[in-house]
């Protein structure tokens, strides 16, 4: 029998009269990398804090490694957390920061030292070990924060937007580092982010949250290829999926038609939807077009490689037939009878 690393049962949370989370259920397998995404204010951090025990749920149970920990304090839950703001202890050195939790738990000194040194090795922090947080760069501070989590040898790592205070280049590096750590440690990780790229590249499974609910849970490719509803379809993928009023296309059995920008062909001569280019973005690897058409304005189109389209030109667009999505009145995905 495989014990689930983390199980959430009917978690709900209200602040006063405001309901932030409602009936959240989730099963996380051992060693899995789970990412929470969702618009700002949908309760991702709140859910993570409930798992950590920093916030009491209004209802429901948190089960870690088969044990109901709902009534345990954070330090007894077998978790470690990395915060967006690093949250290092300003008066302690790197070593002190990493060692504090173990000292508090009464770990023998020799073992503390050994674990701290191992973590420093893993994160290339050896030379900084006697420095204080004020003497470190942002990226180094975040590595120390990750190190502080590692030395605890937790059953569950929690990350709350750990990369959002870093600049773009550092973010990529640290992202790779976290992916490497996940493989190396084989640990279960729950990670909150705004960033789609982070979610798509790191996650085994993504949990899409929106307004108190879980919209869909699935692997990145499942969410991309098979979104359960309009919200998930619009949230995953960049540029965002085009939504077209079904009536304009003369389709009866759906309310909205969704088509991703990369699933539209553009041609000067012929195609289904003629239109005028409003704006062109050249990204080198891709070219994004925004086109004023009868069906949608703007219709975004993503073409691979370089193209010489210019704003003001008239072109014809054709959607790839088997890559269109149908949604009903409630935004739920439907499969039309003739498909």
């Amino acid at each position: 029998m495989i014990l689930g690393a983390l199980e959430l049962k009917n978690i709900s949370k209200s602040f006063g009269n405001v309901e932030v989370l409602k009936d959240i259920n989730l099963d996380v397998n051992e060693g899995e990398f789970i990412i929470f995404v969702g618009p700002s204010g949908c309760g991702k951090s709140t859910l993570l804090r409930i798992i950590a025990g920093l916030e009491d749920a209004t209802g429901g149970e948190v089960i870690i490694s088969g044990k109901n920990v709902s009534a345990l304090p954070p330090s007894k839950r077998g978790i470690a957390m990395v915060f967006q703001t690093y949250a290092l202890y300003p008066h302690l050195t790197v070593r002190g920061n990493m060692a504090l939790g173990l000292k508090q738990a009464g770990t023998p000194k020799a073992e503390i030292n050994q674990r701290v040194e191992l973590a420093c090795d893993l994160l290339s922090l050896d030379e900084l070990i006697e420095r204080r947080p004020a003497e470190l760069s942002g990226g180094q501070r975040q590595r120390v924060a990750i190190g502080r989590a590692i030395v605890r040898k937790p059953e569950l790592f929690l990350f709350d937007e750990p990369l959002s205070n870093l600049d773009a280049a550092l973010r990529v590096n640290t992202r790779l580092e976290i992916a490497r750590l996940h493989k190396q440690l084989g640990a279960t990780m729950v990670y909150v982010t705004h960033d789609q790229v982070e979610a798509m590249t790191l996650a085994d499974r993504i949990v899409v949250l929106n307004e108190t609910r879980v919209e869909q849970i699935g692997s990145p490719m499942e969410l991309y290829n098979n979104p359960a509803n309009e919200f998930v379809a619009g949230f995953i993928g960049s540029p965002k999926m085009n939504f077209i009023d079904a009536e304009r296309l003369g389709i009866r059995d759906a309310k909205t038609i969704g088509i991703r920008p990369e699933h539209i062909k553009a041609d000067y001569e012929k195609g289904d939807w003629p239109g005028q280019i409003i704006h062109v973005e050249h990204l080198g690897s891709d070219t994004n077009l925004y086109v004023d058409t009868k069906v949608a304005n703007p219709l975004s189109v993503r073409l691979f490689g370089n193209h010489d389209f210019k704003a003001g030109e008239t072109i014809h667009m054709t959607p790839l037939a088997d890559k269109t999505y149908y949604f009903d009145n409630d935004g739920e995905r439907v499969v039309p009878a003739d498909k």
Binding site: R49, A52, L54, P73, P74, S75, I79, A80, M81, F83, Q84, T85, Y86, A87, L88, Y89, L100, G101, Q104, A105, R148
Partner: peptide, 14 residues
């Protein structure tokens, strides 16, 4: 005072 800092302390068992 940063909530994250206090929470980090709580997780470390302070």
């Amino acid at each position: 005072v940063s909530n994250d800092l206090k929470n980090a302390g709580r997780i470390d068992g302070l």
